[in-house]
Amino acid sequence: MAKIAGAVVVDIDRCKGCELCVNECPFDVLAMSEDVNIKGYHYSYMKNPSACTGCLACALVCPDTVITVYRVKVPDTAKS
């Protein structure tokens, strides 16, 4: 069990579907959606949210800064 839990929120309508975040994510958290956003782009979303550590990799390479990253320490009460 990870001691850190992360999550990202993608600003869907500003995503241009470049996939650089998917490519950069070390833990295969992200994937491209099957449907498209208001601009017609497939957008990035968390396919495996439980693997996200909030490492920032996706957000750092995102050319349009559409990714906001959250991170918490996993409470001690959580069991593996």
Partner: peptide, 19 residues
């Protein structure tokens, strides 16, 4: 591949924003 069971609504809160 790491794994956590924290519900998203407990992570995605303004005070947890790191970027």
């Amino acid at each position: 591949i790491p794994h956590h069971d924290v519900p998203l609504d407990q992570i995605i809160k303004p005070e947890n924003i790191i970027f």
